[in-house]
Amino acid sequence: MVLTRLIPLWIAIVSGVAILVSAFIRPMESWGENFTDTFNVIAAIASVLGAGSLLKANLAKVSRRDAGWGFALVVLGTFLITLVVGLGKIGVHPSHDFPQADFGGKQESADTPFGWIYEFAMVPLTSTMFALLAFYVASAAFRAFRAKNLEASLLLGTAFVILLGRTFAGVVLTGWLPDWASGLRLENLSVYVMQVFNTAGNRAIIIGIALGVAATSLRILLGVDRSWLGGGER
């Protein structure tokens, strides 16, 4: 109980209050930075736990021949290759400052095996995943954007203004409007919607979120809410 509840709670309270106070008292500014650095160090050490978990989960999947075990094999293979190439600094060029040391160079340089993994595997794979959004946006728009009531209809109209106003289609469709009515041109209307209606709504949400963050932080700092520690007895 002491190790799993009391000590973590105390660490949260002490560090939380110190970081909070450090924002207002100049001599304490560096103390807040120290806590942030400490967190980064702990997170870096914890990555070993993550690697262990990844190996265990995927090895178990392969040995049980679970659905998609072939993918688990690919994960294990690529994980090990990247780990060996990166940690072993395979194929790195000696550093300019230390030409006699074979391992002195940086593995992330473009012309090293690690750089190739980044350039020819990581970049296209992540770009592909990001590009999937275009397809999902289309299917979500087709399925969910329905004029079910007045509010939904207004939303639909606004969506059309933004979608058309953010491309040359807006200019083609409403470019003929005279100067005195230029505010109604789709490209201008879309900017107006973004700057006025969107900004007003976003500010309201941001204020609500900020207060929610403050209340949640206070609950944690005062030990009122301990469910992040697994709750249980206090």
Binding site: V137, R146, L163
Partner: peptide, 10 residues
């Protein structure tokens, strides 16, 4: 296309 899809969906 998105505008078209939304119109068709409605």
């Amino acid at each position: 296309l998105l505008v078209g899809l939304i119109v068709v969906g409605n």
